[in-house]
Amino acid sequence: MTDPAPDFEEFVVGCGPRLIRVAWLLTGDRHLAEDLLQTVLAKVWPKWHRLADNHPEAYVRKALVNTHASWWRRRWRGELPHGELPERAAGGDPFAAVDLEQSLAAAVRRLPARQRAVVVLRYFEDLSVEEVAMTLGCSTGTVKSQASRALRTLQSRLPVDEQAWGGERRVRS
């Protein structure tokens, strides 16, 4: 058996930023995302000689979703931290983009695990419905229905303000 180290190293360097982003979107925490990705890469390493030629990035994304789901199922959920966001000052808000990003990220993290996985893969990773279905091991109809439910939930949690914001519709927190 040949040493998979060089190919694996190239893969991690090339795809690492995208994979850490997927992990962060799934976990909502940079440190947990790094732990999740490291755990998955440690699982993939021994199988690398079989995976290297068969879309390893898709395999690793699916492993990220599955590993995160197993972590999520084991986690104690006795407390759910939440807080009120302060009211915004009138006029132009120099931190509007950051507020929007944080509000959206928080709303995505509150979605059920399956819906969050669909949203992350479909809209943040820009995968097609078919690719998401293949990654999650479900039908395209399931992907569409989960995406629809997730978007409806996000819309209800992030009411839209009709004021123009950078040429786009602005979300109120």
Results as ranks from 00 to 15, higher is better:
Val12Lys: 07
Val13Ser: 12
Val13Trp: 07
Cys15Asn: 10
Cys15Lys: 13
Gly16Phe: 03
Gly16Arg: 05
Arg18Ile: 06
Arg18Tyr: 01
Leu19Met: 06
Ile20Asn: 06
Ile20Asp: 10
Arg21Lys: 13
Val22Trp: 00
Ala23Val: 01
Ala23Thr: 02
Trp24Ser: 10
Leu25Ala: 03
Leu26Ile: 02
Leu26Arg: 01
Gly28Trp: 01
Asp29His: 05
Arg30Thr: 10
His31Thr: 14
His31Glu: 15
His31Ile: 13
His31Ala: 15
Ala33Gly: 00
Glu34Thr: 12
Glu34Arg: 13
Glu34Leu: 07
Asp35His: 12
Leu36Gly: 01
Leu36Arg: 01
Gln38Glu: 10
Thr39Met: 05
Thr39Arg: 07
Val40His: 02
Val40Ala: 01
Val40Pro: 00
Val40Leu: 00
Leu41Pro: 02
Ala42Trp: 01
Lys43Phe: 09
Lys43Gln: 13
Val44Trp: 01
Val44His: 00
Val44Lys: 03
Val44Ser: 05
Pro46Lys: 00
Lys47Tyr: 07
Lys47Ser: 14
Trp48Gln: 04
Trp48Cys: 04
His49Phe: 13
Arg50Trp: 08
Arg50Asp: 11
Leu51Ser: 05
Leu51Trp: 03
Leu51Asp: 04
Asp53Ser: 09
Asp53Leu: 06
Asp53Phe: 00
Asn54Arg: 10
Asn54Phe: 13
Asn54Asp: 13
His55Met: 05
His55Pro: 04
Glu57Pro: 00
Glu57Ser: 01
Ala58His: 06
Ala58Gln: 11
Tyr59Ile: 10
Ala63Leu: 07
Ala63Glu: 11
Ala63Asn: 06
Leu64Arg: 00
Leu64Thr: 01
Leu64Lys: 00
Val65Lys: 00
Thr67Ser: 05
His68Ile: 05
Ala69Thr: 07
Ser70Cys: 02
Trp72Lys: 04
Trp72Ala: 06
Arg73Ala: 05
Arg74Leu: 06
Arg74Tyr: 10
Arg74Asn: 09
Arg74Trp: 05
Arg75Pro: 04
Arg75Cys: 01
Trp76Lys: 15
Trp76Asp: 15
Arg77Gly: 09
Gly78Ile: 09
Glu79Tyr: 14
Glu79Phe: 15
Leu80Phe: 14
Leu80Trp: 13
Pro81Trp: 08
Pro81Tyr: 06
Pro81Asp: 10
His82Cys: 15
His82Trp: 12
His82Asn: 14
Gly83Asp: 14
Gly83Asn: 06
Gly83Trp: 11
Gly83Val: 13
Gly83Ala: 15
Glu84Gly: 08
Glu84Cys: 07
Leu85Met: 11
Leu85Cys: 02
Glu87Leu: 11
Glu87Cys: 07
Arg88Leu: 08
Arg88Pro: 04
Arg88Ser: 10
Ala89Phe: 03
Ala89Gln: 09
Ala90His: 14
Gly91Gln: 08
Gly91Glu: 06
Gly92Ser: 15
Gly92His: 11
Gly92Gln: 12
Gly92Arg: 12
Asp93Ser: 04
Asp93Tyr: 02
Pro94Ala: 09
Phe95Pro: 00
Phe95Gly: 10
Ala96Cys: 08
Ala96His: 11
Ala97Ile: 12
Ala97Asp: 15
Ala97Lys: 02
Ala97Tyr: 09
Ala97Ser: 14
Val98Met: 08
Val98Cys: 09
Leu100Asn: 09
Leu100Glu: 15
Glu101Val: 06
Glu101Leu: 13
Glu101Ser: 10
Gln102Leu: 12
Gln102Phe: 09
Ser103Arg: 13
Ala106Tyr: 04
Ala106Ser: 13
Ala106His: 08
Ala106Phe: 07
